[in-house]
């Protein structure tokens, strides 16, 4: 067998700096996500959610389509959380754990590349793939909005709500990457993220506000309510929650928009950095 005829002079091989490596690896990871079955599956789920909501809105249009703010508040507010959590689970649940479980990490970690580069590139790729799902849901929403209210009547709150949704996505993905870094088995990351973000944090928020009777600023679901809240006239723009009486006389808190953004950014920073810290110390044993 012939040896390779194309030798590369050592001076021609200069390992790129970390930032270009992040961008390169992000590109390859994103392509993997976009070609994966899970991307197609999630695409189907998001379209299904959009179709179901469109049908519900169409059926109850007298109540839900009274004005465009309440329409966007109800439609967007009802669906985008689910889209975000499912996207984070699908794209982030095994992002780190899968590298250990599927042994793909052994392929990457033999390269002259920092662990932080791998982590950041995978995060950005998962974030972009998830953002694509959020935008798809937005297109379905805008399509409905155009149908009921005409093409030129998109409220400015929609743009702010989209920014909040993207911030929430970053926070959820940060937590997902943390869980994924905690375990070497992908299923644990999937299950923990789904349980916490679909039920766990909401229950915790109710317990903190209802039983302990303090503002649940430390729970991410508290900040999540701002995404739909920006559409309503009672919107609190401040940095402290407002108090009201709940259905059973419990104390209820509603996060201010500023407060929500701070909570989301804090969750993103703390969880993403903690996940990176764990991944830096994880052994491929």
């Amino acid at each position: 067998m012939a040896t390779p005829t194309v030798a590369i002079p050592a001076t021609h091989r200069i390992v790129p700096d970390s930032l270009p490596q992040v961008l390169k690896l992000t590109r390859y990871q994103l392509r993997e996500y976009l070609r994966s079955r899970r991307f197609l599956a999630l695409l189907g789920i998001v379209v299904t959610i959009g179709v179901i909501l469109s049908a519900v809105v169409g059926h109850f249009r007298g109540v839900l389509v009274s004005d465009n703010l309440s329409f966007y508040g109800n439609f967007w507010g009802s669906g985008v959380y689910l889209v975000i959590v499912l996207s984070a689970v699908f794209f982030g649940g095994d992002a780190i754990a899968g590298e250990f479980q599927n042994k793909t990490g052994y392929f990457l970690m033999g390269l002259p590349i920092r662990r932080s580069t791998v982590y950041v590139a995978k995060f950005i790729a998962a974030f972009l793939a998830s953002t694509a799902m959020v935008l798809l849901f937005l297109v379905i929403l805008v399509g409905n909005g155009a149908f009921y209210f005409g093409g030129g009547l998109f409220p400015w709150q929609l743009a702010l709500s989209l920014v909040l949704a993207i911030a929430y996505l970053a926070a959820v993905l940060g937590a997902t990457f943390l869980f994924s870094s905690l375990f070497k088995t992908s299923a644990y990351g999937f299950v923990l993220t789904a349980i916490l973000f679909l039920f766990g944090f909401s229950i915790l928020e109710s317990l903190v506000s209802g039983l302990i009777k303090i503002e649940p600023w430390m729970v991410i679901s508290y900040a999540q309510s701002t995404i739909g809240g920006v559409f309503f006239s009672t919107t609190n723009w401040g940095f402290h929650g407002t108090i009201s009486a709940g259905v059973f006389g419990n104390t209820m808190y509603t996060a201010g928009i500023g407060e929500g953004i701070v909570i989301m950014v804090a969750y993103f920073l703390v969880t993403a950095l903690l996940g990176l810290f764990l991944f830096e110390r994880e052994e491929f044993s």
């Binding site: 091989r13 970390s18 993997e32 599927n102 052994y106 392929f107 033999g110 390269l111 002259p112 491929f284």
Partner: peptide
């Protein structure tokens, strides 16, 4: 200096898996 050290090394440890869609 992991990055510099591995720059001129080719590594195959534990039969790694390549992303299957590649």
């Amino acid at each position: 200096e992991r990055k510099r050290a591995l720059a001129d090394a080719g590594v195959l440890i534990e039969s790694p898996e390549i992303y299957p869609s590649m």
